[in-house]
Simulated assay, not measured.
Amino acid sequence: METSDATGVHLEEAMVLGRGTLLLAGAAIVACMVLLGPSTPSGALFARSLPVEAAKDVVPGRVMTWNICNPCDARNVDRAAEIATYAPQVIGLQEACVRDVEGIRDHLARRHGLVYHVAYGTVLRNWGRCGGAPWSPGAYGQAILSAAPMTDRVSVEYPDGGSEDRGYVAVTTTVGGKPTRVFNTHLAQRRQEAVRAGQVDVLAADVDRHDRAIVLGDFNAVPDAPELTGMWALAADTDRHCPPSSAGTCEPTTDWRSKFDYIFLRGIASLEHGVHPTPHSDHHLLHADLDPTRGEGIQQALPTSVAFTASRPSADRQGG
């Protein structure tokens, strides 16, 4: 009987120890899941939840431009979540490192089910902005993400980039069911008006070759800036209330309350647009929903006297 009692005690102890081990193992698994994040495409329990009104699939005819800010303390998973909220058919990103764009694209596919093709328009390699090995720094510049395949990619570096190399990338893709030439650019920063004017001349000469075109980007200039005259002569901004005149009311697209970001349309009409502040960049997301059946936006008449009344950038922050 003593042997039997002892055996029972040992068995009970073993069962207790077994349950304890299972509990510890379960806790460890949960902790790892919390730390590492979800492994499912939808990001089930642990993914950042999107707003109720978030798009569930790519929105046909919707385009977006966003300077994602570099260097900034932002995670690509959060950038992807911001984009997924509006799910544009085409996105133009500025200040973009190739590694960051790859991460954003991967998160969009795995967590949100949004699959994009990518065209890069990198203009320099910069370790300070994009990391990498000192002898092989990451590539930096612009990128276009499109739900439809892209062809005829052209990457152009402006002859004069100003204080930092700048350029544009252009592709042909399908927007709203029609072939469209899409440009994405980032003009010279701060007080370099003459440099930006030369860059607009280069860009406008290419845009002028196409009857149907969308020009996305951070132009680092308010709408009435003289250096933007060449763009206004070719295309209209998606914001109908923001012509280059004092009669307009332009919605700011930056944290310092200036409109620097544009969606210029040539041969395409805009139905509506939205400006969306975000904690992940000093530029807001700007999107436009386009009407592929109407061919407006070919030219915006310039007034004889241009006077822009919106707030101008402060002396210590005029864009990057």
Rank of each mutant, 00 (worst) to 15 (best):
Y158G: 11
P41S: 12
T151M: 06
T7G: 12
R317H: 11
D316N: 11
D100V: 00
A81I: 00
E102M: 08
G103R: 03
D100T: 01
R129V: 02
P179S: 12
R48D: 10
D289K: 05
G121W: 06
T293A: 12
P313F: 01
T278A: 04
T21Y: 09
P149I: 03
A288I: 04
H273Q: 14
C130I: 01
T21M: 12
W66E: 00
L145C: 06
S146L: 07
G37R: 13
P88R: 03
L114Y: 03
T278L: 01
W135V: 09
L11E: 14
S305A: 12
A139Y: 02
P252K: 06
G161V: 04
A310D: 10
A109E: 09
I91S: 04
T172Q: 10
V52K: 08
A109L: 07
S39Y: 14
R190L: 07
R79I: 00
C242A: 09
F264S: 02
M33K: 12
V171F: 00
R166Y: 05
G131F: 04
A269T: 15
A133N: 14
V30S: 13
F308S: 00
V98C: 08
Q189A: 14
P134W: 15
G20H: 09
V171W: 00
L93F: 04
S311L: 11
R240G: 06
T180P: 01
W256M: 11
P292N: 10
A233W: 05
Y168P: 01
T304N: 13
T309N: 10
Y140K: 02
G198D: 07
V30H: 12
R191C: 07
G141D: 02
R48E: 08
P51M: 09
V215A: 11
T151S: 15
G113L: 14
S246T: 09
L302A: 07
T278G: 04
N126V: 00
D237Q: 09
S136L: 15
G177C: 14
S146Q: 09
Q318W: 10
E193I: 08
V16W: 08
T151H: 10
T185K: 02
G176V: 09
